[in-house]
Every structure is written in C-alpha cells, then in structure tokens.
Nucleic acid binder design. Structure first.
Lengths: 142, 142
DNA sequence: CCCATTACTTATCATTTGATAACAAAACTA
DNA sequence: TAGTTTTGTTATCAAATGATAAGTAATGGG
C-alpha cells in the first residue's frame, strides 16, 4: 500500500467533506448568532452537558473568549449554566428550551438536504456508505 | 436501511473529520499569513491555475474580499497573476516560487502527522481505508 | 492554615473577516 | 456602436474573532 498516495487521497477527501458540509449547513443558522456561536451550540447539542473548558479545548477557543461567547448565548436565552454541586468551580452547560428549538430546526434543515443528497442511492449504495463510514470512523478519524 | 440513523452517523463522522483535520493542520501555517489566506493558498495549490472568481465561489468569499486577500498574498510574493491572453478580464493565479516552498513545507508537515496517525494500521486496514475513501468520495461527498 | 492550582470571568485591544457601494475595463450583443 | 454583462478592483465600515493581562472563587496538598 502506497502511503503517499493514500495521503493524497485523504487530502482531496477531506476537502470534499468540508465542501459538502458547507453546502448542507449553509444558511441553516439564525442570523441572531455568529458562526462561532453556532459551532458552540452544535458542540453542546452533540455532547451536552459540557463545561466551558470542554468547549475551549474542543473548539479551540481560549477560555476568555469561550466565556464571552457563552455569556452572549446566555443573554440570548439559548443556553443554561448549572454549577456542579461537588466542585463549585465547574459549570455544566446545556441548551435551554429556546436553544433546543433553534438547533432542532437547524438540524432538521441539514437532514433534509442530506436525505436529498442520498435520495438516488440504491439500497446497496447506502449499505456501502454505512460500512465505509464505520471503517473510517474507527480506523482513521478516531 | 434507516436513513435517519445514517444521517446521525454522518453528523458524528463529519465532526470527527473536522476535528482530525484540525489536529493535523494546526500550526502548519506560517505566522505571516492569516487563516483565510492559508485556505486560499491551499486551494490554489490543489487546483491551480485558478481565477479570482473560482476562489470566490469555492471558498465562499465575496469578490471584493477575494481581491483584497489576493493582493496581500501578491505583496507577500506568494502568488503570481497572469492575465488570460484570450479574455483579458480574466486572471490566472498560481503559486510563486516562495508560495510553493511555503506550501510544500506545510503539506510535508501535515503528511508527517498523517503517516504518524496510520503507522499502526495493518496492510488490511490500509486497504479498507483506501476502499472506504473511494466509496464515500464517489457516493456521498461527490 | 497557607500556598499552589484549577475553573472561570472581566476588561481591553488589535487584527481579521464580512458586507456594501462605487468604479473600471474588457467582452459580448443587438 | 451603444448598451449590457462579466471580471475584477478600490475604498470604507462594522462586526467577529483572537490574544493578553489581571482578577475571583473554589479546591487540594502539604
């Protein structure tokens, strides 16, 4: 197996993933939040409950800036903070009711476009895709 | 095949791809250029020669902003512009010698990290990965 | 109890990025 | 050739983002 060729394939693959992701997610976010805020909400949606430190680490945003953006999201009533009862320095962040509604709508929109994209795939294609996602998830993008 | 489940798998997959891509590419770019400028150079590297319009479309940057960033890259001697002889409105953008050196170094660094990541994969694993990349590239991220 | 560490906040500033209006030059079109 | 479209530029402004310094409060280890 030529690892150099595999690298090149990986480069164009990730480029395609980014491009398609952009296509499926463009204009799904409300105008009332910024792109970075949307990313934070998306991360919370998938991983909640999370701490500000988690967000800082995983979204690669400094703690001061994370704190600022969370404050803004809080002021917009999209998230809720709960202090850990064990360690009162820690905060657990969750989507608020409004936040959940906003993200449900956004993800439904993305899902619609996704289903549209695979509408012409045969049963076998879908199974191939499913297997391929598993393979890459476990062996490359772990 | 449950398409809803496939969508969820797709969401976590793309999240992983973005995360791993970030890991492999972090700190590879010179401090003398901004993230957006790096993306433009990367796009030029893969697709050259390209026109400003191509960059604007594919990188989702407005023409005025594309023009501004290209001007900055030009001032840093990282790219060269050549006017089309047939249609003199068009410009073809290429990496300059310096630009090529910069991107070669950056990509070599990314490749090093990539090889590191797959160093423990068996021959069969690599073949699985290779096939999976092909499947997804043709059937999902086309 | 004291000191170091952790988790998070506040304030401030510079830079980057995005958006818009107005323009110029070349090419196409009727 | 006059008007329109395409391709790209310049200028300007506001907003988003990133970086840093300084601070608070809770925890944990001697």
């Amino acid at each position: 197996m030529d690892k150099k060729a595999l690298f090149n394939k990986w480069v164009s693959f990730t480029t395609s993933v980014h491009q398609v992701t952009h296509e499926l997610t463009q204009n799904v976010k409300s105008d009332s939040i910024t792109p970075v805020q949307y990313n934070i909400l998306e991360y919370i949606t998938v991983s909640q409950p999370v701490t500000p430190s988690d967000i800082s680490n995983c979204q690669h945003i400094s703690m001061p800036n994370t704190s600022r953006e969370l404050k803004k999201l809080s002021e917009k009533n999209l998230i809720e903070k709960v202090t850990d009862t064990e360690d009162r320095r820690k905060q657990y962040i969750r989507l608020s009711k409004d936040g959940k509604i906003m993200m449900d709508e956004a993800l439904a929109f993305v899902e619609f476009r996704f289903l549209n994209r695979i509408q012409n795939a045969s049963k076998e294609d879908l199974e191939d895709i499913d297997r391929a996602l598993d393979v890459l998830q476990t062996k490359l993008f772990y």
